[in-house]
Nucleic acid binder design. Sequence first.
DNA 1: CCGGTCACTGACAACGATTACCTGATGGAC
DNA 2: GTCCATCAGGTAATCGTTGTCAGTGACCGG
Lengths: 336, 336
Amino acid sequence: MSTSPIRLRDVALAAGTSTKTASRVINGDARVAVDTRKRVQEAVDSLGYQVDLMARSLRKGVDDTVGIVVPTIGDPFFAKAIEEIEQMALPRGINILVASNSRDPHLERKVVDGLLARRVAGLIVTPFSTDYSFLERVSTPVVFLDRHPEGINVGAVIVDDEGSAHRIVMHLASFGHRRIALLTDGLTVKTSRLRREGYLRAMGELGFPVEVELQATGCVDAAQAEACTNHMLDLPVPPTAIFSARSETSLGVVRALHLRGRTDIAFVSFGDFATADVLNPAVTVIDHDPRVLARKAMEMLSERLDGTLPSADDFVIPVELIARGSGELPALRAAS
Amino acid sequence: MSTSPIRLRDVALAAGTSTKTASRVINGDARVAVDTRKRVQEAVDSLGYQVDLMARSLRKGVDDTVGIVVPTIGDPFFAKAIEEIEQMALPRGINILVASNSRDPHLERKVVDGLLARRVAGLIVTPFSTDYSFLERVSTPVVFLDRHPEGINVGAVIVDDEGSAHRIVMHLASFGHRRIALLTDGLTVKTSRLRREGYLRAMGELGFPVEVELQATGCVDAAQAEACTNHMLDLPVPPTAIFSARSETSLGVVRALHLRGRTDIAFVSFGDFATADVLNPAVTVIDHDPRVLARKAMEMLSERLDGTLPSADDFVIPVELIARGSGELPALRAAS
DNA sequence: CCGGTCACTGACAACGATTACCTGATGGAC
DNA sequence: GTCCATCAGGTAATCGTTGTCAGTGACCGG
């Protein structure tokens, strides 16, 4: 037997006031007599009244929610980011709507529109590849996470993708590697492009030949990365070092290397992952922490929600290279 | 410059009809003249009208959203579950609200109430430890995921926790182990209790002594599991096998074992994890797949949303033990 | 030629809360 | 003893959409 829901007018009736006064009490308006306030409070408690957030949001014009759009929710990187945002939103009474663009540019636009139609208070988006200029005619505050979007210049929280990739290559080179392979997601993804640019710049500066067969640029998930790694290891002259541009792809690389027992090949991952430090050798990574990015993104969004300055500058989170062993394996003299 | 939002009345005005008729077109009502429909359609397109879902939901009494409550969003197990649910909801135009109870019983109730106040169409909940009997007076359909809640008898999608745990112990025993350690989350968590019961039953049936020092029942995360494992390994007579009741704790066990080089100790994890099959030895697991659970849960919820039978029976997903090596290590004769 | 379906359409109220505006009363200042 | 500021509280409009119900012609069988 479901009890009929309690509405504000029921509370007002019980407290002997108008709905307006009851509303004031609930919203903490000071202009209510202590006595009246108490009566309303009691009515609320005894009836178990709960505000209908739907109705409130309609009236106010915005919903107390933040929408999050990521490529894939199950990716631990994004899962951690979502967690961080949710934790920050909780004390503010803000709920989180999550949606994935499923790595589909067409869907991406639809998903964002759907969230806007819901009148979310703000959005945090990791763009996949859509042109986001349509957001310019929208008043909803948006912060971009991990990637700078196309077609619009607003604030994004990012890391130095190009520079960090450059650094990884330099690191590997310092251990004698020349044949350094690159695995990235599709190049429609901005971070993939930037990391590849850093790779190419470093290779160029070092005077190393850049070979097409050492670049796998379409690894969308761990399985594909594993396949690509296997393919590279089967080359007549295989790479002596591998640079995986994403933690998801790193899982595939790790699987390929370990199942083949090729733990002699140097390996650096852009992004940490769960068992990276217990593998043998432990995996050297760029500490690309989703929580830190997410926290900053939510801070920026909060400022905009509070109407503070809408500084559209990007915020660059510093990252570090954590040497654990796999990235410091020396290159063997002339491969087998 | 943000354009003022386009409302239905603007569309109606442009199409020269009433808002009601425009509404009919938008909702695909057949009783509209072809000609009228076309005019409205054009107005919608040229103005770029989007339904205000907030208003629609208020009118309809329910929001096209499904709320998900899990202990921690960042846990890969739940992240995968959320992903699966979101993927299934997408084609139905349903959005997903995620919330975590942060493993806090007090918060848990508040979080669920908050979602209900938002008038979600349905809820999928992994209960932590709250008494959920309060849901009986609520008409919102709810499905429980992975754990059966306290105080209420509704449908839950679960696995055979007790039986699977029993099976793990039997498996380890068949390789000669007697000193089998158990690591679980707090016992307020139902799954932890059940898995421990299975462990105890098996130990009893085998006639093995059940020692308190071999049971760590408060490992909430990987770090604590690691500490507990280390503690056990330092016992005068350490365990020869470890049963970790959760994939999150398994990560801690793996770290402890590998950092100490004690890969001679048998190990089985209740729940798979990312690099379980590439570790050396590869980790034997119970294949406790969040996606399968989530899919079934969403199916059950969909049925209820469609008003179909509200069968309140639990649905038990079968699981398998995947032997990969770590669970098949033989017990050494009389430990050092 | 009339009553009766049928297809289509619109006016209006309602969803439940908030806000703009207004009313009375009280009280202090002059 | 007026008068205005302030306080407590109420009334009605409003947010944008959809359900209810009524109304208009057109068409049909009798």
